[in-house]
Structure formats: structure tokens, C-alpha cells
Design a protein around this nucleic acid. Structure first.
Lengths: 238, 238
DNA sequence: ATCGTGGGATTGTTGAACAATACTTCAATC
DNA sequence: GATTGAAGTATTGTTCAACAATCCCACGAT
């Protein structure tokens, strides 16, 4: 054991990006994920293996690996011998998503006493992001900010697995807005609510924040499900 | 609209198994998942593409699709140009897993007022399963029963997404036992605790059940992390 | 209008090939 | 003696082409 060894041992941990020079399949998956979440690919669209592999210059096999990844995230659905389609959530999915969000967000907020300063700050940053977007009447940006807000809430739990699951749930939630070709102004009324929740958190009054959030989720789910079932009825009848 | 149409409309919903005549990749993934969870493949083991594809008579491409699926479940880890390995959780992972479990299980139990009879019965069944296993000194079965118990608790939330996430978390938890070549008797002392929790649930005293569960999780995490860090120290020193 | 029956298109899976990268071995150097 | 450097080897990453299995659609028969 020399002095150099000692120094090397004290070096900071490797940034986790080191582990993964991303593979082609992952890069393709990342690209498609953005397309789906941003609505460039409408729910229900079929993704042709041949056309996509040609368009993006990757082999069918690589593309299929990407499809598998996104299917597991529920952004695509895979039907045997028929292909993969962009998920088209139903109102039952909306309810399920909100159940999941209650499980993830409420406990995280309630336990915010033990959350790091940075985690609380992230919540505040998301609120500010939303307000900036509202200024500019950037409704899509407002929706994104709202997603960031709720992801930050779940982040209070301080668990990497929760964070990842929450990200998935929010990505799916975003699909819901697309499927009812969503006015993103939908989010606008909730911005003040977000601000209030963050205020409670900043005061470290976790319980009050949780109560607000619970009401928020109830209201949001209610509104969403109502709009959604109406849309489903119209589409079903047509 | 004829009378037959009417009857057809009233038919039960299709069992969701209908959607998926499973592909080969999924079947391979299912098989490997069992191997990993049951410990036939020890944590850290590298899975050679060539050898496995030959052994199980599938092409490398198909096998790789299976690898992707399991990587996303965190049962395998994929390292670029090095291959896939059975995950080797660290003590930090143990903490993270318990954070996740608190988020999933506690809210589900607290909200058990609204849970279905069937969901509560599933909890009871898991307890019985555990007691039967203890009778036969079947420690592995006892561990399985314990997993079922906690999955049933999360199931009280009544969300398919939560159920799936919980299953993943529990599968990973099982890996933890393997990595410290786990005496499954580990679970035995907790069986009575499970019984108590179920009793509270059956009485519909959700809050009392949640309190018990919270203590359970604290104790279990504490014990696990202690044993785990001791093992890490030994392994690191050796 | 309903029910079979093709034909065409797409996916499912395989096998082989080659490029890119990591690991191993061994010799050269300080 | 330990470390560095430079082959060679093994394994993964990715592509391509082929064929089987399956689904979809249109056509015609009843």
C-alpha cells in the first residue's frame, strides 16, 4: 500500500454515466420515447418494423430490442404477429394511474420532514418553471412543468426506484392528454395549487402539504376521468 | 341489433391472457427470471449469449430480446461489450428497496377500508401458506409465502401498475437474500407478525395494521442491512 | 348479409457474417 | 519484481437475408 494507492482510494465515485456507453437499441428507444410522449406519434399508431428500420438506418433486430424496452414501459403495446402500437389508455388506465400516483406522491410528501433541501428546492424549481411557461402562454411547456412538479414530489422519498417508476407513470399520464387531444390549458388552473403545496413544504408542514396534494389529485382525477369517459363515449358511438 | 348481439355483449370480458400468445423471447425471459429468483443463477454470474442460445435452442437475437426485458426489471444488468450479469444488489439497494416498499405497502394498507374482500382474503391466504411451509420446515417456501404476503398487501391498493411494480421490487428483494446466501429461516420470526397484520385487516382496522406493518418494515430493513453490510465488509476485505 | 378461401403483407425467428470492444497473454522496460 | 505496452483471442454489437407463421383484406360462393 503506497501513498498513491491511498490517494486513488479517496477519489470520488465514478459518475454513473461511465457504466453505459449507450447501445444503438437504447438510443432508438430514447428517440421513440420522445416521439410518443410529445405526441408526434399518436396513440394507436402502428409502428412498422420495416419502415422505421429503413428510416432510421437500423436493422429490424435492433429496432425490435427498442420496441421491447418501450413495451415494458407501457408506452407501446406489442400484439403478437400484429406489431407494436402506441398505447391508447382507457379511462380505467386513468384511474389506475391516479391510484399509483397517490401511492407514490402522498407518502413522499408526508415524509418530507426527512427529505433533503435539494429535493424540496426541485419542487420549487418546477413551480417556477410552470409560472414562466404560463407567462409565455406555452401550454405544452406548462404541461411539462407540471410533470416535473409531480416527479419532484415523488423525489422527496429519495428512492431511485420510486423515481423511475414515477417517471413512467407520468409519461403514461401524458399519453392520456394526447388521446383526448388535450388542451394543455388543462394544467393552468392547477399551477396555483402547486405553488401552495410547495409553500407548505418549504415551511416543513408536510401534513398540510399532503392534504392539499390529496385534494389536488382527487380533483384532477375527477376532471380527467369525466372528460375522458365523455370522449370515449363519443368515439365509441361514432 | 338482434337478440344474439345482446347476448354477445353480455359475455364476460376476455381473459387478458388472450392478448398474448407469448413470443419466444418472453418465454425465455420467464424461464431466466425463475432461474434468477430461485438462485439457480447466482448474483454476479455472467450470461454468455452463445452458450445460452445454444443450450436453449434459440437464436442470439431472441435471447438478447429476453435479456433486455430482464434488464429493465433490474434482475440482470447489461454492460456494454461485456455482457449481461445477474444483478448483485448492494446495501444501498436494500435501503432503496425498503423505501419503495414503504411507499407501496403502507398506503395500500392504510386505504384498506376500500379494498375488496378478495384482496383481504389474498392476504390471509398468504399467511396460511407461510404457516404450512413452516410446518414442513420448507424455508424456501416460507420465503415465497412471505413475498406473496407483501404482494397481497400492495394489492389492497387495487392498481395493476402498483401490483406489477411491487412484484419487481419483491423479486429484487429475493436477490438480496441470495447475495448473502441467505438462511431462509430469516423469514420465520416474521410469520406471527404477518398473522397479526392480517387480523387487523380482517377487523377492518386499517390504521392499526399500518402501524404494525411500519414496525415490521423498520425491523426487517434494520436486520437485513446489518447482515448485509457485515457481509459486504467481509467480502470486500477478502 | 354471412361464411370460406385465397393472396399479399407483416411479423417471428433463425443463422451467418463482420465490426467493435474487452479480456488475456506475454514480452519489454524501469 | 512490478508495471507498462502490444499482440492475439474471445465476446458482444449490429446488420443482413431468408423463411415460416400469422394476420388482414378482398373476392367470390352460398
Amino acid at each position: 500500500m503506497t501513498a498513491t494507492d491511498d490517494l486513488i482510494d479517496r477519489l470520488p465515485e465514478p459518475p454513473e454515466a461511465l457504466a453505459r456507453a449507450t447501445s444503438q437499441a437504447e438510443r432508438v428507444a430514447d428517440m421513440l420515447r420522445v416521439f410518443v410522449i410529445d405526441g408526434a406519434l399518436a396513440p394507436g399508431t402502428r409502428l412498422s418494423e420495416e419502415r422505421l428500420s429503413r428510416k432510421y438506418g437500423v436493422s429490424r433486430n435492433t429496432l425490435r430490442e427498442a420496441f421491447r424496452l418501450l413495451s415494458r414501459e407501457r408506452l407501446l403495446v406489442h400484439q403478437m404477429h400484429r406489431g407494436v402500437f402506441v398505447s391508447r389508455p382507457t379511462s380505467a388506465d386513468v384511474r389506475d394511474l391516479f391510484s399509483a400516483r397517490r401511492c407514490l406522491e402522498l407518502p413522499a410528501v408526508r415524509g418530507a420532514r426527512h427529505a433533503s433541501e435539494a429535493a424540496v428546492a426541485a419542487v420549487g424549481a418546477a413551480v417556477a418553471e410552470g409560472e414562466a411557461a404560463r407567462e409565455k402562454a406555452d401550454w405544452w411547456g406548462l404541461g411539462t412543468a407540471n410533470m416535473h412538479f409531480h416527479r419532484a414530489l415523488a423525489g422527496l422519498a429519495g428512492s431511485a426506484r420510486i423515481d423511475e417508476f414515477m417517471s413512467q407513470v407520468l409519461a403514461e399520464t401524458r399519453l392520456v392528454f394526447h388521446v383526448m387531444n388535450a388542451p394543455e390549458q388543462f394544467h393552468a388552473p392547477y399551477l396555483d395549487w402547486n405553488r401552495r403545496i410547495h409553500l407548505r413544504l418549504a415551511e416543513r408542514d408536510a401534513d398540510a402539504a399532503a392534504v392539499e396534494l390529496s385534494r389536488y389529485l382527487d380533483a384532477s382525477e375527477e376532471q380527467l376521468v369525466t372528460a375522458f369517459t365523455a370522449m370515449e363515449r363519443d368515439a365509441g358511438g361514432a
